[in-house]
Amino acid sequence: MRKPLPVIRLRSNGDFPLARDGVVLTFFMHRNHEEVFATVWRAMQTYLRAVPPKSLNWYDADDGDTLALDDNGWEVIRKRMLERPWNLGCSVELSEDAGEGEIAGGYQFEYYGRRLDDPFWKKPATAVSFTFPTEYLLEHGPDHLRALAFRLAWELPFSFGYASLAVVASYGYWRTSDWDLLHALRDRYLGLDLYDVRSTGSVIGTHARSASWLTFLGQPLLGQLGGIEGLRQALPFPEVVLLPLDSQRLLITLSEWPEAIDIQQGGIPPQYRALALKLEPFLYEKRPDWPASYLYHWIRRLSQ
Results as ranks from 00 to 15, higher is better:
residue 143 D to V: 12
residue 113 G to N: 13
residue 106 G to C: 12
residue 239 E to Y: 01
residue 46 T to A: 08
residue 121 W to E: 07
residue 225 L to A: 04
residue 130 F to H: 04
residue 110 E to T: 08
residue 247 S to Q: 12
residue 42 R to N: 09
residue 118 D to Q: 02
residue 168 V to W: 02
residue 179 W to N: 06
residue 31 R to E: 09
residue 244 P to F: 12
residue 50 A to I: 07
residue 254 L to P: 06
residue 201 G to W: 15
residue 96 E to K: 01
residue 206 T to L: 00
residue 269 P to V: 05
residue 53 P to R: 11
residue 93 E to Y: 13
residue 86 W to C: 05
residue 239 E to V: 00
residue 170 S to I: 03
residue 121 W to R: 03
residue 44 M to F: 11
residue 64 G to E: 12
residue 167 V to T: 07
residue 179 W to Q: 14
residue 159 S to H: 15
residue 155 E to S: 08
residue 128 V to D: 07
residue 52 P to H: 13
residue 247 S to K: 11
residue 290 W to R: 10
residue 248 Q to R: 13
residue 154 W to N: 10
residue 193 D to A: 14
residue 283 L to Y: 12
residue 240 V to T: 14
residue 268 I to F: 00
residue 150 F to W: 15
residue 218 G to T: 12
residue 203 V to S: 02
residue 123 K to D: 15
residue 11 R to M: 09
residue 154 W to P: 00
residue 180 D to L: 10
residue 107 Y to A: 00
residue 127 A to V: 13
residue 151 R to T: 09
residue 116 L to P: 02
residue 72 N to Q: 10
residue 261 I to A: 07
residue 196 D to R: 09
residue 253 T to V: 12
residue 49 R to T: 08
residue 300 R to P: 03
residue 260 A to M: 11
residue 140 H to D: 09
residue 245 L to R: 02
residue 261 I to S: 07
residue 302 L to Y: 10
residue 133 P to K: 04
residue 161 G to E: 01
residue 281 P to I: 07
residue 48 L to R: 14
residue 4 P to C: 09
residue 257 W to Y: 13
residue 291 P to L: 03
residue 26 T to P: 01
residue 144 H to V: 11
residue 238 P to H: 01
residue 304 Q to L: 09
residue 16 F to Y: 15
residue 153 A to Q: 10
residue 75 E to C: 03
residue 97 D to E: 12
residue 121 W to L: 05
residue 53 P to L: 04
residue 189 Y to P: 05
residue 59 Y to H: 11
residue 67 L to N: 01
residue 141 G to L: 05
residue 291 P to Q: 06
residue 168 V to R: 00
residue 83 E to M: 05
residue 208 A to T: 02
residue 26 T to M: 05
residue 89 G to R: 05
residue 189 Y to R: 02
residue 82 L to A: 02
residue 43 A to Q: 05
residue 31 R to N: 02
residue 171 Y to T: 00
residue 96 E to L: 02
residue 101 G to R: 03
residue 45 Q to I: 01
residue 277 L to I: 06
residue 135 E to L: 04
residue 13 N to L: 15
residue 171 Y to H: 06
residue 263 I to C: 13
residue 265 Q to L: 11
residue 255 S to G: 12
residue 254 L to C: 11
residue 297 H to E: 15
residue 96 E to W: 08
